[in-house]
Design a protein around this nucleic acid. Structure first.
Lengths: 147, 147
DNA sequence: GCGAATCCCTATTATACCGGTCTGGTGAAT
DNA sequence: ATTCACCAGACCGGTATAATAGGGATTCGC
């Protein structure tokens, strides 16, 4: 029950872009360096995010990526949906798989509700709010160390 | 982001046991047949559930498994925790992995909160409530079919 | 125009985990 | 004693994820 690295890498990249909004496009290489991610791998993810309309790319020298929309209009749920697929906890392709008789299966409801709960959580969370939290954390870094 | 079959298989088995409470031990074979699960695989899961103290086994002829506690005192969260591990969405072993600097990483908080949300959801859900829902569904089966 | 920089795309590989089987052992009931 | 059922562990194959490699397309600066 872990998120794949695709989502987490992608989110880290998107957060970088959110923090750099208004400063022109950011190179994949730059993001990868700052976040310590494999650059060529991240490239693939960025292409997916572009195709999904979440970022825009400018090619050529001094190119890079930028958010395609306002940070406040991009939710974490969207990003995860692109990189991870829908947040369904079980493969129950509309009634077929699962337990065989989903109409009378109380568990199907549970898995479904759980997925919806998660989705709602991530939908309530935008890049803007995330960026703000990040900025706050960096502005007031933790000065207490464990002894 | 799928639950492994371990959790879903295990839940289905536990629900069977909850529905058969007070009727003596139930054989693994019986559960597997009713739920169409691979018997030998389910056996492994039942052992884990026993070691975790969620079910009790009686060996020998006419043996089988039964819930070790009242259905209302067993939450879905517990069962999943045994079979799936803790509900953490990312591997962030208390600060080390993740992004490298979890103290100043807004995302770590997000993943953490999401895991807690899920856990809370599953904790609010007991075998008793599940069994009740299941019984209700079976008593009033769906009679409307899509045309 | 030329070349460098950067995104774009596809193919390939390796590793780990998951789902599952098989074999043999242990304890209880008849 | 025999049978039934849980117990324990090794073992194995498929698949998806994570990552690499390499060659193209597009734009900028000169």
């Amino acid at each position: 029950m872990k998120l794949s690295t695709r989502s987490t890498y992608g989110m880290r990249a998107m957060l970088e872009l959110a923090l750099a909004v208004g400063q022109g496009p950011v190179m994949v290489r730059e993001i990868a360096d700052r976040q310590h991610l494999p650059a060529t791998y991240l490239e693939q993810l960025m292409v997916l995010l572009r195709k999904a309309g979440l970022v825009s790319a400018t090619r050529g020298a001094h190119g890079g990526y930028a958010l395609a929309r306002e940070p406040r209009d991009i939710t974490v749920a969207e990003i995860i949906a692109v990189l991870e697929g829908p947040l369904e906890l079980v493969d129950c392709p509309s009634g077929a798989g699962c337990c065989g008789q989903p109409e009378v299966c109380a568990l199907c409801d549970v898995w479904d509700d759980a997925g919806k709960t998660l989705t709602a959580f991530f939908q309530s969370m935008t890049l803007a709010s995330l960026a703000e939290r990040q900025r706050a954390k960096c502005a007031a870094p933790v000065l207490m160390y464990a002894i």
